[in-house]
Design a binder for these strands. Structure first.
Length: 749
DNA sequence: AGCACGCCGACT
DNA sequence: GTCGGCGTGCTC
């Protein structure tokens, strides 16, 4: 029986089948193989081997050859890719692309020759020629007749340089050729230049003179091997960083909560030191690039550190992957891209800020990185630590009681300001009072606003008309400074009308929640002499003055958490807590509490007064932060959240997936969703396992109407079985699956 | 993801 | 009359 291999590519596709190269053995799982692909060739990963019938084998193309002697990826990793793809109901190739960020996009040199005595007139024997010499159909024909030999190797990194071909001669002797002569002499002295522009700069001659040298044959461009790219240098942080003295007594899976970001990292330093000294590498995952630099530079003060993130070029990653296994053990700090980095042996896996929303990959395989990391650590049988301000129900499923480590919370003084008992908007009378104090004492304040722009909308006070997006069922956000209405979902924008399009009156006013612009101008009005800074996605004021301790007020979205802490903050304001609490998601309350517990991370030393503006001052979250014993109150809150999730069958006590059907025609989306639910019933789904279809909370986005169905199952096998029922929904309807959705109401593009 | 094929608007 | 927009479909 012929042998076939299953080959995976870094593309949104499942593995494809090829025949083993003629006369060769299947090769190991996790090896790289070169195969014909459309009209060319490409690199894939062998993820399976099986026998196929002789008849079936006729339909398969033959692989061309192996790329490495040793497996490129250990077998454990290879199997893990497929497992993760299965759980997230995503093509395995997407997981490969996300987890193995190097090794599959190399340029290839593909050469062919005729087999002995094939007597093909358009292909030589005994001489390798570029495959591109032959038209694709010809090559395909000769392949099927077994008339052609093929070989492929990786093209080494090259760069184009300008080199001299012959010396100055009398054709360059004239006065008119002075510039060319000068450039050629310089080129002869230094052997080569990276470009004509570079040479012209160095020689101080116009670029046209250099080009003339090339045209006249005195110089030419050549491809030469280029040196490996430099890796980013991690500069040790100059700031003092309090590392703990003794290692924590960690379990195979642990959590570290409480304190603040730096304290949590500091508490783990002795463990990282111990591992590297024992000759094992450590992996420290961060949720996003913004946290990478801070983390890496703090650790670099005491440990050997390397970094990996999407910011590295392909060549830099290739170099790191090549060199990591050869060098001494390091602490590798990176985003999810670092998870499969070839550090062997690995002694400890740390997932920093495990509750951070950025760990949910928004595109590609919609994986939740902490979950993936936990399964991976389990497979490799190495210890794992989650750190987070707040212990989460998800952690409670993974971490045993002995594994739970806690640092006491920084206790802030909270003041809750009831917006329903104040007439001033958007600054309550309490807030005006404390802001004035901050101004008088020349201190700093941070105000966290729920959104960017001026207001949640622009509407008519007379008739209630509200400007909304032509593509989405959403109000257009009002950006006063740019004098524009903009959709925060699809980006559509338009000029605000001068009068109400509905009733014609000139009574258009900002509606709904205030954003950074509104708070900015409100603060300016009451404190005209205090510098006010704005920070959000649209607008970033330089903050050097604040970082140097100058007085001022920072009005920001949660973008403030991605900046270094400020030195002299006397006041933190959560401008409208309700916006966070009212996010229609079962995690909203926890996320709000997390936000409040992370507030100390905005400030350097002294703990400021924290003022929460809200219409629901007795909300449990407000009660928790005002409790005498904060640590106990948070514990009790998390217990309640766990109990609630258990009662309603939410994760982590069940597996949850959102299946979204979207179409330009509203009825087709609904119809497809209903068909899906009907098919689930035929599969034996129980009533409590299927919720929906329901129209998405924002009914239309970018011109697409969306319907969603939620799938819930206690056991993972059953969950996967139900999810396999998702089929193509027919033309005009897009189906998207999000396993373990973090934002239940997010539109899946 | 790329890449080809295919059908409707603004131009040499 | 053509260039080019991106919708749809395919890759062993």
């Amino acid at each position: 029986m012929p042998t076939a291999i299953e080959v995976l590519f870094p593309l949104p596709l499942p593995p494809f089948r090829y025949l083993v190269p003629f006369g060769e053995r299947p090769g190991p799982l996790g090896g790289r193989v070169v195969v014909p692909w459309q009209s060319g060739v490409r690199i894939g990963l062998v993820v399976g081997v099986d026998e196929v019938s002789a008849g079936r084998s006729l339909e398969l193309r033959e692989a061309i050859g192996w790329l490495d002697q040793e497996p490129f990826l250990p077998e454990i990793h290879t199997a893990f890719l497929l497992e993760i793809a299965g759980y997230y109901a995503t093509p395995a190739g997407l997981v490969l692309a996300a987890m193995v960020p190097t090794g599959f996009k190399e340029k290839l040199v593909h050469e062919i020759q005729a087999v002995k005595r094939a007597a093909i007139d358009d292909l030589p024997e005994d001489l390798w020629v570029e495959a591109a010499r032959l038209p694709v159909e010809k090559l395909e024909l000769y392949r099927s007749q077994g008339l052609v030999l093929e070989r492929v190797r990786v093209q080494e990194r090259q760069r184009r340089v300008l080199r001299a071909v012959r010396p100055v001669d009398r054709n360059l002797a004239g006065r008119a050729q002075a510039n060319q002569r000068c450039a050629l002499e310089m080129l002869l002295t230094y052997e080569w230049f990276g470009s004509a522009a570079e040479l012209s700069r160095e020689a101080g001659v116009p670029e046209s003179s250099v080009r003339a040298l090339v045209r006249k044959g005195y110089a030419r461009y050549e491809e030469v091997p280029s040196p490996p790219p430099a890796l980013p240098q991690v500069l040790p942080s100059e700031e003092g960083f309090e590392a703990a003295k003794e290692p924590l007594d960690l379990s195979i899976r642990s959590s570290l909560t409480g304190g603040n970001r730096r304290e949590r990292l500091g508490a783990l330093v002795p463990n990282l030191v111990r591992e590297t000294e024992a000759g094992r590498g450590c992996l420290v995952l961060v949720p996003e690039h913004a946290l990478l630099e801070e983390t890496a530079s703090l650790l670099a003060a005491v440990l050997p550190v390397e970094v990996v993130s999407g910011e590295l070029s392909d060549d830099q990653r290739a170099r790191l992957w090549r060199e990591l296994p050869l060098g001494p053990p390091v602490v590798l700090v990176g985003t999810y891209l670092a998870l499969f980095a070839p550090q062997r042996p690995l002694g400890l896996l740390v997932v920093l800020e495990a509750g951070n929303a950025s760990y949910k990959l928004a595109s590609g395989p919609r994986m939740f990185v902490p979950t993936v990391a936990a399964r991976f650590a389990e497979r490799l049988d190495i210890p794992l630590v989650f750190t987070s301000a707040l212990f989460s129900p998800e952690m409670s499923q993974l971490v045993s009681l002995e594994g739970r480590k806690h640092l006491a919370y920084k206790r802030l003084r909270y003041h809750v300001s009831d917006m329903s008992s104040t007439r001033s908007w958007p600054l309550s009378t309490d807030l005006v009072k404390v802001l004035k104090q901050v101004g008088e004492r020349k201190r700093q304040a941070v105000m966290l606003t729920p959104r960017r722009g001026f207001s949640g909308g622009l509407g008519c006070r007379a008739c209630g008309w509200l400007g909304s997006c032509p593509n989405c069922d959403l109000p257009l956000r009002y950006h006063r400074r740019d004098a524009i209405l903009r959709c925060h979902q699809c980006g559509a924008s338009r000029r605000p009308p001068d009068e109400c399009p509905k009733c014609g009156q000139v009574t258009l006013v900002p509606f709904r929640g205030a954003g950074t612009e509104w708070f900015f101008s409100a603060v300016k009005k009451i404190l005209p002499d205090v510098p006010v800074f704005r920070l959000d996605r649209d607008h970033q004021d330089p903050l050097e003055e604040l970082h140097q301790g100058e007085p001022g007020i920072l009005v920001a979205t949660t973008a403030a958490f991605r900046r270094a802490p400020l030195p002299d903050v006397g006041l933190i304001v959560v401008c409208l807590l309700d916006t966070h609490l009212n996010v229609p998601d079962f995690r909203a309350e926890e996320e709000t509490l997390r936000l409040l517990l992370e507030l100390p991370e905005l400030v350097k030393d002294r703990l400021p007064l924290t003022l929460l503006q809200t219409f629901s001052p007795s909300h449990p979250v407000c009660e928790v932060v005002r409790a005498k014993d904060l640590d106990a109150a948070v514990d009790a809150f998390v217990e309640r959240m766990c109990a609630r999730r258990k009662a309603f069958g939410y994760p982590p006590f069940s597996h949850l997936a959102k299946v979204q059907f979207s179409a330009r025609v509203s009825a087709s989306a609904l119809q497809a969703a209903e068909r899906f639910v009907a098919s689930l019933e035929i599969r034996g789904a129980r009533a409590e396992e299927v919720i929906g279809p329901t129209p998405a909370p924002v009914g239309r986005i970018k011109g697409f109407y969306a319907q969603q169905v939620f799938l819930k199952a206690a056991e993972v096998e059953r969950f996967r079985w139900l999810l396999e029922g998702v089929k193509d929904a027919g033309s005009g309807v897009r189906v998207r699956i999000d396993v373990d959705p973090r934002e239940v109401n997010e539109f899946l593009d």
